[in-house]
């Protein structure tokens, strides 16, 4: 038997996380795409009974998740396309959005507890730390965004029956 090749440790070209989006508007050279229901919530077998569905899920926030893209492929209204973001972009994005505010929050809390030792003051320091962290996260998210690390890229047009093929 051939030993299976190990692709998971090859980080030279991070694979893309693919998703399917539909063209909902064409404005000159820019198309607006709306992601189709993604696998995490919509494909779940209990989605019809799921209590989390009403609280800002993919189902009712699809409209808010629309995103623009350059129309280099001459896409038309209603067309389905496969878009992708780099796999490590997701890790970078979650580190930016969550790790930075958490670190500033905890550092502020530990410093305040060490200096004063009062719960109320620690709490205030943590809230201040969280706000500072969010500002820092905002700045670094902008930087990531201008480098194009977060924007989905056009991969190909979707076939007629193609759906997300995430197990």
């Amino acid at each position: 038997m051939m030993p299976s090749e190990d692709h998971s440790t090859d980080f030279s070209a991070p694979p893309m996380v693919e998703g399917i989006a539909r063209v909902v508007a064409v404005e000159g050279s820019v198309v607006w795409l709306e992601p189709e229901q993604t696998s995490t919530c919509g494909a779940c077998s209990s989605s019809s009974m799921c209590g989390a569905k009403g609280i800002g899920t993919a189902a009712n926030s699809l409209e808010r998740r629309r995103f623009p893209m350059d129309n280099q492929e001459k896409l038309t209204l209603g067309e389905r396309v496969v878009v992708g973001v780099r796999e490590n972009a997701l890790v970078k994005a979650s580190l930016t959005a969550y790790a930075i505010p958490l670190i500033t929050l905890l550092v502020a809390g530990i410093v305040a507890q060490g200096m004063v030792g009062n719960d109320a003051i620690t709490m205030l320091a943590m809230v201040a730390g969280l706000v500072i962290g969010l500002i820092v996260a905002r700045i670094s998210a902008k930087r990531l965004s201008t480098r194009g690390d977060l924007a989905p890229q056009f991969l190909r047009r979707a076939h007629a029956g193609e759906t997300c093929h995430i197990e």
Partner: peptide
């Protein structure tokens, strides 16, 4: 907060948040 901090980040990460409620 994530949506306010960065809309592109929200597009990528927003899907996980409602799952945490339950």
């Amino acid at each position: 907060t994530v949506r306010k901090v960065s809309p592109p980040l929200f597009q990528m990460l927003g899907i996980y948040l409602p799952l945490i409620t339950t």
